[in-house]
Write a protein that binds this DNA or RNA. Structure first.
Lengths: 202, 202, 202, 202
DNA sequence: GATGAATGAGTTTTCATTCAT
DNA sequence: AATGAATGAAAACTCATTCAT
C-alpha cells in the first residue's frame, strides 16, 4: 500500500526511480546529508557512494546546491503523497490526527526517511533561490496539518491554538530522528500514541 | 535574581566574565555559531566580531573545536545553574515541571540563549573528544528532568514513560528556537503553559 | 563577383560548403571564437550552436585544436583567394595597394570576417604543430603585401621600409575589428582611403 | 627623468613598490599575463613566479580578476603619468604628437611595458565590474590623444578625422608589441618617426 | 598578547575527451 | 554519425592553523 503510493509517484515522474543513476545519487545524497550534514558531505563522498568519479556528478546536477534541493523535493513530495492517501482513508478527526503523526514519524524514521530529515535539518544550507522554490510546497504541507488541527479545535479535542500546537508537535516529531529506533524498546504504534496524547486530552 | 545566578557562576570561575576578552569571544562565537552554524563561521568571522585578527584567536583557544566546546560548556553550566536554583524554589511537582520548561525555554530563547542553542544544533560538529568531555554534564542535566518526570509519573500527573516524554518535550522546546519570538503574539508564560499541558492532563 | 571567388574555392574543396555539417560547424566556431575567444568557447558551446551534442563534435574533428586550425585555414584561404583576384584586376600600384587594404579590411569586418579575426586574435592558442602547418600559408599571404609595397617604394610612393610599413598597416587594419562598424558614420571606402593615406604621401 | 615619474607615482601610492610583495606579484602577473594570456596563466603560475604557494595569492588579492584589474591600473597610471610629463615638455604640436607616440610605444615595449600590453590584449577577460571601474581612466587617457590630434587638425598637419586617425595609430602602435624588439634592426627613434609620418604629411 | 603573511590540504567546479550503445 | 554518461586532470578558491616579528 505504501509501496503503491511511492510507485505511483515514480510513474508520474515526481520521484526519481531509485534504480536509475539519478535516483541512486539522490538516495545516497539523502543518506549522507543526513548522516554527516550537507556541509560535511563532499562531492567526492557523493560520487564514491554511487561509484562514479567526482566530476561526473555535475553531469546530473548543476552543482551541489541543486542536489540538496532535489533531495528535499523528493522528501516533501513523498511525504505529502502518502499523507494525502492516509488522510483520505481516515474517518474521524482523531484518526486523521493519528494519521498525520504516523506519516510524519515515518517520514523521518522510515526507510525513505533520509530525505525528509534533510529537509528539516539542512534547510538553512539550501540557497535562497532554492528555498524560495520549495517554500510553496512546504506551506502546502503545513496546511494539511493546520486544517486537521483546526477541525480538532472546533471539536474541542485540543485546547492550544492550532498554530502553536503544530509547532510543538513538529519539534517533538522531527526530534525523534535523533533518538528513536523502531521497536527498541518502543514500537512505532506506541510512539504514535504517545505523541497523539500530547495533543489531545483523553 | 537570575543575574545573581549568572554572577555567582562568573565569580566561581565557571562562566567567563562577558567583559573579559575571553568572555567577549565566547559571546560572539555563540551568536555566530547559532546564526550561521559552526561550519559556516570562519575563524576570521570570529576574530573580526571581537575586533582582532584571525591569528590572534589561537592565543585564546587552541583551535576552533576548543571554542565550540567552551561555548557549549558555558551554555550548559548557565542552564544548569539556573535550573538548580529554580527547582529548589518550586514546591509541588507541577511547579517543578513548569520551572524546568520555563528554564529550558529561556535557555534557548533568552538573552543568553545562543550558547544553549549551539549545544543542541551544533552537537555533531564537536569533536569526539569534546563530546566525551561534555557528555557527563549533559547527562547530569538530563537527570534533573528525569527525576522530576518520574515523580510526576508516581503522582499520576503524566501517563507516558518519563524517558519518552522527556524526549518529546525536548524536541518541542528546542524547536522553539526556530519560530518563537517572545511576546509576538505569544507570551513566554503562555508558551510555558502550553508546553506544560502537553505533558500533564489537567 | 566576390561570391564567385568563394564559390570557386568551395568547388575546389579548399573551403567547406557552409551548408554542409562541417561547414556549419566551422562557421559557428569562427563566430564563437571571435566573440568569446577560443579558450572561453567550450566544446559544448560549439556543439549546441550547431544543434548536436558535445560528444559528436569529435566525429568531425579530432580535437578542439583541430577546429581552431580548420577555422584559421578557412580564413586565410578565403582572404588570399579574394586578394589574388582583386590584385590581378588592379592596374596601378596605388590601385593594388588600395585593393590589398580593402580586402584585408573586409576580411576582418565583412560577413565572412570571423575566421580571419580568429587567425589574428587567437593565433597564440593554436598548438605549435598547428601554427607550423599554417605558417607557410601566412607567409605567402604576407608576401603579396610585401611585393606591392616594394613596388611602391621603388616608385617613391612610400617612404618607410616595406617591412615596417606592412606591420604598421597590419596593426591599423586588424584593430578595426574592435571599433569599426561599416557605414556608421564612416563608410568602407572612406576608411580604405584613410588607411591608404597613412601609407602614401599624396 | 623617467625614473623620476615612476618614483613619484610610487611615493604617491598610485603604483605599488616593485620591491614589496604586492608589487612583485603585480610585476610577475603583468609579465605572465602578457606572455601566456590571462586565461592561460594559472594562479599557481603566479604564485610560483613570486615564490609563494597558490593559496597565499588570495591574501593579497580577493581573486584572479582583482589581480588583472590591479595590473591594468598600474599600466594605465604609469603610462598617463609619463605622458603628462612629456606633453608638458613639448612645445610644438608636432613635438606633442611625437611625444605621445614615443610614450605609447614605450608603454607597450619598454621595461614597464607588460602592464600596458595587458590592458590592450586582455581587456575582454576583465569582469564587467572591473571594466566599468577602469573605463573612466582609459577615457581620460584617450582624451589626451584626441586633444593633440584636434590641434593638429586645426593646424592642417593631419587630414583624417582625429577620432579615426587615433584608432588607426592605436592599432599600429599596440601591434608593435607583437613584432618590435628595440634596436633590432630598427631603433626606437626611427620607429617613432615612421609612425609620426603615417599621421602627418611632411 | 597581537599581527598578518604564509601554508597546504581540501573544496567545488570545469571541461576536453572517450566510448559503449 | 550521433548519443550522453563517465572520465580525470586541472582550475580557482577556502580556511584553520602556524610563526617570525
Amino acid at each position: 500500500m505504501l509501496e503503491t503510493v511511492e510507485q505511483q509517484l515514480i510513474d508520474d515522474g515526481i520521484l526519481a526511480d531509485p534504480a536509475s543513476p539519478r535516483g541512486r545519487l539522490l538516495g545516497q545524497a539523502a543518506r549522507l546529508f543526513r548522516e554527516k550534514g550537507y556541509q560535511s558531505t563532499t562531492v567526492r563522498d557523493l560520487a564514491s557512494a554511487v561509484g562514479i568519479l567526482s566530476g561526473s556528478i555535475f553531469h546530473h546536477y548543476k552543482n551541489k546546491d541543486a542536489i540538496l534541493k532535489a533531495v528535499m523535493l523528493e522528501g516533501i513530495h513523498f511525504s505529502m503523497g502518502r499523507m494525502r492517501t492516509q488522510l483520505a482513508a481516515a474517518e474521524t478527526t482523531v484518526d486523521k490526527l493519528r494519521a498525520l503523526i504516523a506519516c510524519e514519524l515515518d517520514s523521518m524514521n522510515g526507510n525513505r526517511g533520509d530525505a525528509m530529515a534533510v529537509v528539516i535539518n539542512e534547510w538553512r544550507f539550501l540557497s535562497d533561490v532554492g528555498q524560495a522554490d520549495i517554500l510553496t510546497l512546504r506551506e502546502e504541507y503545513e496546511q494539511m496539518w493546520i486544517d486537521v488541527l483546526e477541525q480538532a479545535k472546533n471539536e474541542r479535542l485540543i485546547s492550544a491554538s492550532p498554530q502553536v500546537l503544530r509547532k510543538l508537535l513538529y519539534g517533538s516529531i522531527t526530534w525523534t530522528d535523533k533518538w528513536f529506533r523502531a521497536g527498541d524498546p518502543l514500537s512505532y504504534e506506541q510512539l504514535t500514541d504517545d505523541i497523539l496524547h500530547l495533543a489531545i486530552k483523553a
